[in-house]
Amino acid sequence: MSSNRRRTGPNGSDWRNALFIAPYLFFFLTLLVFPLFWGIWLSFHKADTFSSGAFVGFNNYVRLFNDHVFLQSIWNTFYFVFLTVPALAIIGLTLALALNSSSRLATVLRSLYFSSSVLSVTIVTLIWRIVFVPQFGLLSTIYGWFGAEAPAVLADPDLAMIGIALTTIWWCIGLPMMLFLAALQQIPGDIYEAAALDNAGWWRTLISITLPSIRRTFVLVLIIQIVLQFQLFGQSWLLTRGGPNNLTKPIVLYIYDIAFRRWDVGLGAAASEVLFALILVAAMTQYLISRRQEER
């Protein structure tokens, strides 16, 4: 080997090696890194669709936190995440535990529960509109059997967000269930046999063997769902348009209103950054707490 070649290093200092990652790097930089920083840059400017405008410092952030609709949307988003994420994790796990068998019925039910996940948000909201519609909706019919009158869920300030949360849980339950099923099937069968020989009953086995074995998946499901549910948009927009009285308006819908209907792109970008920070903090907190528990 020539000395010139040796100087380039035996494994990787050659610039040609970078060509292998160049296509990925190109799309990563242009589609992920650049928009991220451009968004931050925009949030410090008074921008609309036609110009990136003048630098305004933290003015957009000040405006945001003085806007009670934005503060309401933050509260709404947290409330929605609180309603959906624990429910998705617990119901997903319960379904996975119930359907973790090779019987034909379990296979059919698994497909059935997952099938809602493949529907688009327009179809899902249409279905649930029919459920919630007063007088002749499914809910009204059920109430009617008992001689009662169903509440107008989507128009009721106390129930509207719960209605959206129900719709979302029904729509999204497939993924957590499948993740939990995959995790359950990874647990070696002989651990359960050892537990049976160790006199562990059903509950003790669940608490001491099954749940600790799928702890990582539980954290994964929580993080995925936190990230997804913080981005609530379609269900709110199609079911309630953010009403009544902005009580179901999440942050993303607020951003859409500001940036794409009022064309205040700078303010919308600032709101986007706040949402980004919230998701990051929530997911990281969840991750760090679970990691600390695991280390204990």
């Binding site: 070696p188 002989d190 651990i191 046999e193 050892a194 537990a195 020989l197 160790d198 006199n199 562990a200 009953g201 003790r204 001491s208 063997i209 600790p212 074995s213 702890r215």
Partner: peptide
């Protein structure tokens, strides 16, 4: 029983593995 794959509980310490059956 001692299993071919040992079937130890991976999330428990050795002490907890040994104590589990007696606790039950």
């Amino acid at each position: 029983m001692v299993f071919q794959s040992y079937a130890l509980y991976p999330h428990m310490t050795v002490r907890q593995n040994m104590a589990f059956g007696l606790q039950n």
